[in-house]
Design a protein around this nucleic acid. Structure first.
Lengths: 195, 195
DNA sequence: CCCTAATCATACTCCTTGCATGTATTTTCG
DNA sequence: CGAAAATACATGCAAGGAGTATGATTAGGG
């Protein structure tokens, strides 16, 4: 195998991450061996263990990348909203739609949850924290009723994730998506302060 | 090793299930080898594969047993309620409290979700169905607003599971449990028809 | 009393992970 | 600029785990 130049070396980690993302998404974490990954790319296990430590480290790196991307996309959604409450609702809907992507379902919501118990500092904690901050603001503005922001964020985040699985499990995805959004609206309206 | 009598043979499967439950709860599915299980009980891998087919089959059997038990316990809770809505709320709270048990968190909510993708017919689908039936009744009685019962059940079930993880993650469990129940009440009241 | 099927034990095979070691390239520095 | 150190891989090896094949033992029926 030919040696790589310096520029290629720096690309190696990114390339490998992308490959792992693709293969993990297709085959799942458990059914993907390190040799499978080396076959898909053209590097060997040595590079893998050098860059990521172990198999879990590789998964953690993939999850972190996905998490950063999706959080950025969600941020863009809530930034364009009229007011804070609409931004929050939009963000919830955006999360629901993103959670339909196989990459997120399989890697983040299924495999990472089982493999990266408490080892990952953020995993999906990062996106729960974003949601928690939004809720905290809404409460301080008197829009949402008094409650613990973390508890609310966990509750909502978990609901959205499970709903996404339900949507993906059916044949008619768009119909289920609409139904899930309706259900979401119902439970969200309970958060508002009574007037 | 001494041969077992007929009566003991019939107990073998149940005994083995209980052992697997204990070891899976303590070490997790992935970190438990078949040899670990044979060491804990006093049967060998031959018996294991004879009764359960493979490792996933063993997990599926454990999950099914836990699921049946917990669903029965939840049924008892909602049966003693005054009206349908209180029964539903009580059942949600009961689920939240049960989801705190390590057995359920580790085996049902974490490992089974990753390992038994769509292979298990029920897994936690069974308890979502129970919840879905309750919601369906509440909607027909005009107590809960019109929505797809499955979507609502998925949303709520997922939220409760995630909230349980959040509670278990903290030190002061009872405080977090109270906060989670408050958050739950908020989102549940949104389901009621406006008067 | 023998025969068959059920129930378990044991001995393998194959695969995977992680590590240890080797090698080439790059960087650092006197 | 040249050597030493660090970096970025490649490769071979050992330990362990899953699943299977096959053998042994017993229950139960005819």
């Amino acid at each position: 195998m030919v040696r790589r130049t310096r520029a290629e070396m720096e690309e190696t980690r990114a390339t490998r991450l992308a490959t792992a993302r693709r293969v993990f998404t297709g085959h799942g974490y458990a059914d993907t061996s390190m040799d499978d990954l080396t076959a898909q790319a053209n590097l060997t296990r040595g590079a893998l263990y050098y860059h990521f430590g172990d198999k879990k480290g590789l998964l953690a790196a993939v999850v972190e990348q996905i998490d950063a991307e999706t959080d950025q996309r969600r941020q863009a959604v809530s930034d364009t909203a009229e007011d804070a409450w609409e931004g929050f609702r939009g963000r919830c809907r955006a999360y629901l739609e993103m959670a339909l992507e196989p990459e997120i379902q399989r890697i983040v919501l299924r495999d990472a949850r089982a493999v990266l118990d408490g080892t990952s500092p953020d995993s999906q904690r990062h996106c729960i924290q974003s949601m928690q901050r939004m809720i905290d603001n809404l409460i301080r503005q008197g829009i949402v009723a008094e409650a613990d922001p973390q508890a609310l964020a966990s509750l909502i985040h978990g609901g959205l994730a499970e709903a996404a699985f339900w949507i993906a499990d059916g044949e008619d995805g768009s119909a289920r998506l609409a139904q899930a959004v309706d259900a979401l609206e119902l439970s969200l309206r309970g958060l508002l302060v009574k007037r």
